[in-house]
Amino acid sequence: MESAIKTIVTTYLGSSRGKENLSGSAFQKLVKKNLSGVMEDTNCSSAVKEMQRGLDENQDGKVSFQEYLTLIGYVANSISQQKCGSNADASQ
């Protein structure tokens, strides 16, 4: 678990290139490169822009680390629900 947390942090920091927030293009690249295996439409720029707008709580056009963590929580929750659903299907 420790390495997963470190990966989440270093992925953000690498994508933001030392800046406090991710720009729209940096967010798009991060999603496409790192989340395409667990999310749909990561190659669709309009879908990723819509996702960014949904995460951007302060409406500054950028994704802060806290807003990024909201996305990570959403993805983790979705994966958990899929796994629980597939386990329920397998036991029937």
Score class of each variant (00 low, 15 high):
residue 16 S to H: 05
residue 82 Q to R: 10
residue 74 Y to L: 13
residue 20 E to S: 11
residue 86 S to K: 10
residue 15 S to A: 09
residue 46 S to T: 09
residue 4 A to L: 11
residue 61 G to H: 08
residue 48 V to E: 05
residue 58 N to I: 06
residue 75 V to R: 04
residue 57 E to F: 03
residue 36 S to L: 04
residue 20 E to T: 01
residue 91 S to C: 13
residue 52 Q to M: 14
residue 17 R to L: 07
residue 32 K to A: 13
residue 1 M to R: 07
residue 24 G to C: 08
residue 84 C to P: 07
residue 59 Q to C: 13
residue 77 N to R: 15
residue 90 A to F: 14
residue 84 C to R: 15
residue 65 F to D: 03
residue 21 N to D: 06
residue 85 G to I: 08
residue 41 D to M: 10
residue 23 S to V: 07
residue 52 Q to T: 05
residue 88 A to E: 08
residue 69 L to I: 13
residue 29 K to L: 08
residue 7 T to R: 15
residue 59 Q to Y: 05
residue 25 S to K: 12
residue 66 Q to I: 13
residue 5 I to Q: 11
residue 38 V to E: 01
residue 62 K to T: 03
residue 52 Q to R: 14
residue 35 L to C: 07
residue 20 E to A: 09
residue 89 D to E: 12
residue 25 S to I: 14
residue 70 T to H: 09
residue 75 V to P: 03
residue 55 L to K: 06
residue 36 S to M: 08
residue 46 S to F: 02
residue 66 Q to G: 11
residue 39 M to N: 08
residue 74 Y to P: 07
residue 45 S to D: 12
residue 33 K to E: 12
residue 91 S to Y: 11
residue 19 K to V: 00
residue 3 S to D: 08
residue 32 K to W: 09
residue 21 N to C: 14
residue 76 A to H: 06
residue 65 F to C: 04
residue 68 Y to L: 02
residue 68 Y to C: 03
residue 6 K to P: 01
residue 55 L to N: 01
residue 16 S to Y: 00
residue 44 C to W: 05
residue 81 Q to T: 12
residue 69 L to F: 09
residue 40 E to Q: 15
residue 3 S to W: 02
residue 42 T to M: 02
residue 16 S to F: 01
residue 83 K to V: 14
residue 75 V to I: 14
residue 55 L to P: 00
residue 29 K to V: 11
residue 14 G to C: 02
residue 43 N to V: 00
residue 34 N to R: 05
residue 67 E to Q: 03
residue 30 L to M: 13
residue 49 K to Y: 03
residue 78 S to C: 15
